[in-house]
Amino acid sequence: MLKAIVTVMLKKGIFDPQGRAVQNGLDSIGFDKVKKVRIGKQLEMDLEMTDMATAEASVHDMCDKMLANPVVESYSFEIKEV
């Protein structure tokens, strides 16, 4: 069994209002060294697969078709044995 951990983030340059709000919140409680916060999402998927290369190709396909919107998001992932 393999586990895929996919991270989806807004592309660089696209304003992330949630990240800004969190940054402001951190600043207000004294963490003034935080200069930028970006919020994304993480998906953990258990894959009934054994072959790493097949799994990678499949996760790429999932990201392109549904998990990320390439117009505004970028994605990265890691796959590990569990």
């Binding site: 807004l10 696209i14 304003f15 209002p17 949630q18 709000a21 919107n69 117009v71 505004v72």
Partner: peptide, 17 residues
């Protein structure tokens, strides 16, 4: 329609959250 690429662009969260 934007998700399906029938229209360009995308709709992000409102600036004011």
């Amino acid at each position: 329609l934007t998700e399906s690429r029938m229209l360009p662009g995308s709709l992000l969260q409102n600036r004011g959250l």
